[in-house]
C-alpha cells in the first residue's frame, strides 16, 4: 500500500509541482492565476470528452487486430495501402496531437512501418476532417486548400526524412519501447 502511494506520488510529481506553482501564482497574481486555472479546466473538459472513445478503440484494436494483419496492411511491404490507411487513420481522428502518441505506440507494437506511423501522426496533427471544414469557414476556402495540399506533401516528406534520419538501431529501440510501454 505504502509502496503504491510512493509510486503514485513519484509518477505525478511534476503535475503536483505545477499545481503548486499555479496555486502560488493565484495567491500572488489572483487575476492571472484564476485565468490560468480556468483555461486548464476548460482544456481538461475538452480532453476528457474526446479521449474515452479513442482509448476504447485503441484497446479493441490491441485485442482484436492480429500482428500479421497489421503487418500486411501497414507493415514494411504495405506500400501505398499502408500510406493511405495511415492518412485515413490520422484524418479521421479527433483530439490533440498528444493523444495520438498512445495510438502510435499500439501501431508500432503491432508491426506497422515507422514511416506510416509518422504519416498517421502528421495527418492527426493537421489534416483532421472536421478541422479542415472549420478552417475553411474561418480563414477562407483558398487558405484552407493551399494549406491542405501543402500539408499532404509536407506530412509525407517529414515522415520520410524522419525515418531516413534513424539508424536500424534507433528503429529497433522505438519498437522495443512500444512493446514495453504497452505491457504494464
Amino acid at each position: 500500500m505504502k509502496e503504491k502511494m510512493i509510486k503514485f506520488i513519484k509518477r505525478y510529481r511534476i503535475f503536483f509541482l505545477l499545481l503548486i506553482i499555479n496555486t502560488a501564482v493565484l495567491v500572488i497574481f489572483p487575476n492571472l492565476g484564476k485565468k490560468a486555472f480556468q483555461l486548464t479546466g476548460s482544456n481538461l473538459l475538452e480532453m476528457l470528452s474526446v479521449l474515452p472513445p479513442i482509448f476504447i478503440l485503441l484497446g479493441l484494436l490491441d485485442v482484436w487486430v492480429k500482428r500479421e494483419t497489421m503487418i500486411k496492411y501497414m507493415g514494411d511491404n504495405s506500400g501505398i495501402i499502408g500510406v493511405l490507411l495511415a492518412f485515413f487513420l490520422g484524418s479521421a481522428a479527433a483530439g490533440p496531437l498528444y493523444a495520438a502518441f498512445p495510438v502510435a505506440g499500439v501501431l508500432l507494437k503491432k508491426g506497422s512501418k515507422l514511416s506510416n506511423v509518422f504519416i498517421m501522426l502528421g495527418a492527426w496533427s493537421t489534416t483532421k476532417i472536421p478541422l479542415i471544414l472549420f478552417e475553411a469557414s474561418s480563414l477562407g476556402l483558398k487558405f484552407m486548400l493551399i494549406r491542405l495540399v501543402m500539408d499532404i506533401v509536407g506530412i509525407a516528406v517529414i515522415a520520410y526524412i524522419t525515418e531516413k534520419a534513424l539508424s536500424t538501431n534507433d528503429k529497433n529501440e522505438i519498437y522495443q519501447k512500444a512493446l514495453k510501454e504497452n505491457k504494464h
Binding site: 511534476i14 505545477l18 499555479n22 492571472l32 490560468a36 486555472f37 480556468q38 483555461l39 486548464t40 482544456n43
Partner: peptide, 11 residues
C-alpha cells in the same frame, strides 16, 4: 502536466 502548462501559457 501539459494541461497546466498550456493554461498558464495562454493566461
Amino acid at each position: 502536466s501539459i494541461l497546466i502548462i498550456i493554461g498558464m501559457m495562454l493566461a
